[in-house]
């Protein structure tokens, strides 16, 4: 997994709440058996018109935000289906960090497993960031857990799950980590099988 430490980039803003995973990538593109190449479908309905031409009103079609690696979005971002394709599509579009007031649970669980940093901030902080991000780049420092506007005095600390932080900083493979606890899992299984034998079948 790609490591995340610091990032300075233009930030695209999408203030509306409840941006669901079908808006991030429509279901018809889930019929792939691969993870890569999904960026062209990200925000498909908003990004292109009916003829498939770029919609100039959409922020990811506007310079310099077409190069944005940071997205600042309205609350309940990523609600709806569990599709990890939503994260894969955003990552393939170039997004490495998303800032919102609140993320949907499953999306919040999927993103860090793909090296994507999610930052939760308060409503007023988001409003200020959205305003300033129109003309300045945004800088994220994960080790010190700070979001700031480039060349400005605005410095916002953010909270972070310690395990997600460690995985992002070190680019850890979570499965390899858990497999190291194999003996512990076996001990648990023996205990649980004794209590609920009907859940084990060989």
């Amino acid at each position: 997994m790609r490591k995340f430490e610091t990032l300075t980039s233009w930030a695209a803003t999408l203030p509306q709440p409840n941006i669901d995973t079908a808006q991030l990538i429509p279901a018809r593109h889930l019929k792939t058996v691969k993870r890569d190449g999904l960026g062209r479908f990200a925000f498909e309905a908003a990004r292109y018109d009916k003829k498939g031409e770029s919609n100039p009103d959409f922020i990811f079609n506007q310079s310099p935000f077409d190069k944005a690696e940071i997205l600042i979005a309205g609350a309940n971002f990523g609600c709806g289906s569990s599709r990890e394709h939503a994260v894969w599509a955003l990552a393939d579009l170039g997004i490495r960090a998303i800032i919102s007031e609140q993320f949907a649970d499953i999306f919040a669980s999927n993103a860090p497993k793909n090296g994507m940093l999610l930052i939760t901030l308060g409503r007023d902080e988001i409003a200020e960031l959205m305003q300033r991000a129109k003309s300045k780049r945004v800088r994220i420092n994960l080790p010190s857990q700070i979001v700031e506007i480039e060349d400005m005095q605005v410095k916002i600390p953010f909270e972070m799950d310690p395990f997600d932080k460690k995985c992002l900083l070190e680019g850890l493979d979570q499965i390899a980590l858990t497999l190291r606890q194999n003996a512990e899992i076996s001990t648990y299984e023996a205990r649980w099988e004794k209590k609920t034998p009907w859940l084990f079948h060989d």
């Binding site: 569990s82 649970d105 999927n110 497993k113 499965i175 858990t178 497999l179």
Partner: peptide, 23 residues
């Protein structure tokens, strides 16, 4: 019972566990 993404599907296949914070 809860929905998971593909990375977690792989995690459960390999380990029969998930790393979670208590909701």
């Amino acid at each position: 019972a809860f929905g998971i993404g593909t990375s977690e599907v792989e995690h459960v296949l390999a380990t029969q566990t998930l790393v979670l914070r208590k909701p």
